[in-house]
Each structure stands twice: as C-alpha cells, then as structure tokens.
Write a protein that binds this DNA or RNA. Structure first.
Lengths: 336, 336
DNA sequence: CTGAAAGCGCTTACAG
DNA sequence: CTGAAAGCGCTTACAG
C-alpha cells in the first residue's frame, strides 16, 4: 500500500523531464513519437495512474458531472440517469450521482457536496419545494446547470429547462381514448399543484372540453398502489367511466393489477393508457398503451447538450421540449 | 464567472491567516469559538466553497466512493445502488456511479476512470468475463474494493465478497412449493454456468433430490419477457408442472403476465415464487410470493462495511452472506 | 491560539 | 522537442 507513482517517477524511469510526461498525457503533438512510446512504456511498467484531482487544481476541469435525481428508484428516472451516465462516460466524463428522495434538505446537501467535489456541471431533476437553497448555491458557485423533467426555478436563462412534451402527449392519448370506446374518460394519478401534473392533465382537459365531455380527475401519488386502489374504487363509484389516462405507467400498471383483481377486462370493459413507456409496458398483460417519452434518448440528448455547453460554450435554449409519441398496444382497445 | 474564492480570500476577509481558516474547515478544537465564528461569517459573505480536490492532494482522502454496477436498469440493482449511495451520502461521502451493461470492456474503462478520479474505495457488482482487466487495475492502484452480489475474482482476501444467502433462499422456496400443492416444480430463468444461477438453483436441486422428485430446469435470460414465454411454453409442453421457483422476481412477474394471458390461475392452477422481493411484488396481481433479500438493507450494510474499512481499517471478512427470508403472499398458494 | 513555509501531483508558459 | 520554475487550493508540522 505504498505511495502511488507520479509523473516524476515516470519521468525518471523514462529518462525525460516531468513536463514531457505531462505533454504525453495530454497527447500533445509536440512530443516525438519515439519519446511518447518510451514514456508510455515507463507508465505501464511502474503502474502509473493519472491523478485528475491534481490536474484539476490547475485547469479546473475535473471531468466530473453531477447528477441529482428526485426519485432514483422510479424506473423512469433510473432509465434517464443510466442513459445519461453512459453517454457521459462515452465522452470521457464520470458522473457523481445522488438520489434526493424528494427531500429538499437532502438535495441542498448533495448539491453542496458536489460543488465541493468540483463537478464541472450539474444536471438536476429537482424536488418540489425548497429549491432556492440548492439553486442559489449553484448560482454562487457559478456552475453550469440544467433542470430537467421538472421546472422549479424560474431562472431558465441560468438553469435551462428540458423535458418531453407532456401536454402534447396527454392530448393524443385523450383523443385516442375518446375514439376507441364509450364511457367517460378519467385522469388518474399525479400530485395536485405540481407542474408536471398540470401539464400532463392539461392536454386531457383541453381535449375533453373541445369534445364537450365532463372530465373526472383523481389525483394522488404516482404509484402502483394508487393505481390499483383507484381501479377498484372507480369501478364501484363511477361505473360510467370506461377509460383512464394515467399520470404515468406505474399508475397504469397498478390499474391493470386492480382490474385483474376485480375481473374487469382491460382493453374492452375498460381502457387504459399510461405515460412514459417504461420497459415493462410491452411485457404487461394486456400490453400497455402509453405515451412514449423516449427517456433513454432524452438522457443521451441532455448529456450532449451539457457537454457542448461545457466544451464549446454553446448555451442551451432556456426551454427544450422533446417530442413524444402515442404507442397503441392492447390496453386501450382499438378504434372502432 | 470569476475565480472562486479560496481560503486566502476568506483569511483576508476575516483578518486571520489561511492556516486558521483551514483549521476552522476541519473543525479543529484549537481555534477559539469567536475566531471560528468570524471565519464562518467571512465564508458565507464571500460565497466560499470548499475545494475537496485540493485538500485531497495533500491527504489522499477524496470522500469519493466508486460504485460500478453490471445492470443498473434492473430494479434489484437500482435499489441496491440507491440505498448504498444514500448511506454513503449520510456519512459525508459522494458516489461516482457507472453502469457497465454487462460489458467487460466498459467495466475496465470505468474502473480506470474512477481510479483517475481518486476514489477512496470501489464497490463493484461485476460483469462475468474479462474480470482480470478490472481487478488487476484495482490491485495495482491499491484501492480497497469489494465485489458484491457476484463473486468473479477468487482473490477474496483482496476483494472481499458479499451477497445474500441465495442457496438458503432457494431451499426454503422449494420446500414451500413442495408443501403447497401437487405437480412437479420447475426452476425458471438465470443464465447457465453463472455462479448466481448455480447458487439459486442448488437449494432447489438439493431439496428436490431429498424429496425424491425429478427437477426441471429452464434456464434463460432473467427478464420479464423470458418469464412470460416460459409460462406459456410450460403449460403446453409440461402440463405436469404445477409450480415454478424463478431465478428472480422479473422472471416471476413475467410468468404472472404469461399465465394471465393464457388464463391460467396463479395461486391455484399454478404456483409461483420469485426471488429478491423488489417493490413491485406486493403490488402485482396476484401478489407475488418471493425470497426477500432485503437489498436496501444490504446496500446500507455494504456502505458501512466499506467506510469502516476506510476509516478504521477494519478489513471485511473474505465472504459475507446476509440472511434471506421467504415471504408468502398469494402466488404460491397456501399449505394444505 | 496563529503565521510562515513546504509540499501534494499536475499544467503551463518560458527558455533553451 | 525538452527542462526549470511557478502555481492551482489546500493541509501539515513547526515556530512563535
């Protein structure tokens, strides 16, 4: 467990100066091919590892990106974080990631820790509430940061916002449900008063209004458990409701489970469309129709946007909306 | 976007030397309370952020832990990684995390990157194959590292191994299935030749052998899709099979879906038990019986083990097995 | 309790 | 193409 070799050790071994070793490390063209090879061999021989922290002290580019996520156990966010991380990795960056579990205090803490670790940029899917503490710290530290999936800080010039086109998605889904069968269509899940809920609901409300149909909104946690309970409750209390558009796939999958439990046949007796298109949708029975947000592609895109910002100074637009697509499978019936 | 304040700026502002500021940063008791307060105020006023990379250069404790996971999109690993990360965070460490997608080359790359970033320790749920490249690099860098969930490198003295007690779990599950009904019980899912598959299968095989029953093993990818297909295929080709113990919950959930599709009633016509107890099990219909590995608790425990190793020098035992527990819900029927 | 000085491993002009 | 020197922001003895 002795001291790790440094460029000085490499230099000594290779018989050159440490500047030369540094130049080799940076692939500088001004080092002769022969010397370069000599140095590389010396590195391999003595087991040299580049020390980025030390380099960072001079250049202030750690190659570290912070990723803070409000709910990392939710498959939607897992998929986002994973795709993003892998895209960063492919471009030579490492990701420091933290889950905040929707806790503003925890979020402020991890954001602070990441700043201390010298992240070059921050990508944050923020909690609702207490956002000031986190974003003010980021602003003070003058670190490029994007807010994704949820827009909680209005300073989008400082903290550009990106998310899928939720409104468009809910409009399509509602129109589809209006076409495929009779009965009222409900909107299920999503916590009241939140932006994302408002957006995913607004396409629904607008479409129903245009069609002259009365809406029925059942807000609540975006969980399987809530979906399941609601499916059962809806059958009892609102037998006239023949379809539901869900806040997300988790709720929809929960409704599938609830309908199975009470023997209500999904796709005919009752029609459901989810939101997000997590992997499970295609494997459920019946296969779940949903609004595909291509969250993996979204993650990759955000990685690119942030790295371009960092490397080329291309400041992202204040608001980016990525297109969504209705995927019709079996849970929503088929147009008559 | 000017230069970030340093301890020198703080010192000047507070009218003390930079050593004093450093001492305050470390909560050294040798600084007078009054001075301490003065310094803290100065820090707040000029927006100072601690620079860990710089500190690390002297002390070689970055407060960074590397977490590399073979399949981060799998809810089992997501839960593990998230719990672990949050436990680290609670003790003041940040986690650099990377998904390797079962790719040995990618794994070697991210391990190298983490070493460069100066992680103080590594926790790795490794890919199968090509392990030498990764673990040799870790050994050369002399970084404490644990292999979890999969034991691929035999040097467990160097890289202690920890995992739930898979063998015991599969034994319990098999006994349970033998008690709750008639028909053969199959083992479904898990790639052939892998340690985890072998372990999760061995309790099954041993129990059947003791009971004098013929085993039926259907290996394959540990996915919902495979479970679904297998449920359908089993009903056609092996109508005598009345129960299945699955490699993991994903397979079991897939089987639930397949049974629903062909109208086979799970819990009576056919009995299923999963493995892991991911969150979804309790929300499925019927609710899935499974072997609980308490992966969240496992993650927290590993975090503790590694940090104790780092901070107190407590070297972990070469192999740690954590207890598992059979959770009986509705999918496995009930003992007659 | 506080200051001055050296050093952690690198990069970056600047000479040669 | 290569060397000597300064400096990144901190910590750590060592004096005072």
């Amino acid at each position: 467990m002795e001291r790790r070799p440094t460029i000085i050790d490499v230099a000594r071994k290779a018989g050159v100066s440490k500047s030369t070793v540094s130049l080799v490390l940076q692939n500088s063209p001004q080092v002769r091919e022969e010397t370069r090879k000599l140095v590389r061999e010396a590195m391999a021989e003595i087991g040299y590892f580049y020390n980025r922290s030390a380099a960072n002290l001079r250049t202030a580019n750690a190659g570290l990106i912070g990723l803070v996520i409000n709910d990392l156990r939710n498959p939607f966010f897992t998929e986002f974080a994973t795709s993003l991380q892998m895209a960063l990795s492919a471009r030579g960056y490492a990701a420091v990631v933290a889950n905040t579990d929707e806790d503003p205090a925890l979020q402020a803490q991890v954001v602070g820790a990441m700043i201390e670790h010298g992240v070059s940029a921050l990508i944050i899917s923020p909690t609702y509430g207490g956002e000031a503490a986190s974003f003010d710290a980021i602003a003070r530290a003058a670190i490029p940061a994007m807010q994704v999936l949820r827009n909680v800080d209005p300073r989008v010039d400082l903290f550009p916002f990106a998310a899928p086109d939720y409104v468009g998605g809910s409009r399509c889904a509602t129109e589809h449900l209006l076409e495929t069968g009779p009965g009222r269509v409900a909107f299920v899940g999503g916590l009241e008063g939140r932006d994302v809920t408002r957006e995913r609901m607004s396409g629904y409300c607008a479409t129903l209004k245009a069609a002259g149909v009365e809406p029925l909104v059942v807000t609540g946690r975006a969980s399987r458990a809530f979906g399941r309970e609601t499916a059962i409750r809806l059958a009892e209390e609102h037998p006239d409701v023949g379809a539901a558009i869900c806040f997300n796939d988790l709720v929809a999958l929960g409704m599938l489970s609830g309908c199975a439990q009470i023997g209500r046949k999904v796709g005919s007796d009752f029609r459901i469309v989810g939101f997000d298109d997590i992997e499970e949708c295609a494997q459920a029975y019946p296969r779940l129709s949903t609004v595909r947000c291509d969250i993996a592609g979204f993650g990759v895109r955000i990685a690119g946007t942030v790295l371009d910002w960092l490397e080329e100074g291309t400041v992202p637009a204040p608001e980016l909306r990525t297109p969504v697509e209705l995927v019709i499978r079996d849970s929503s019936g088929h147009p008559a």
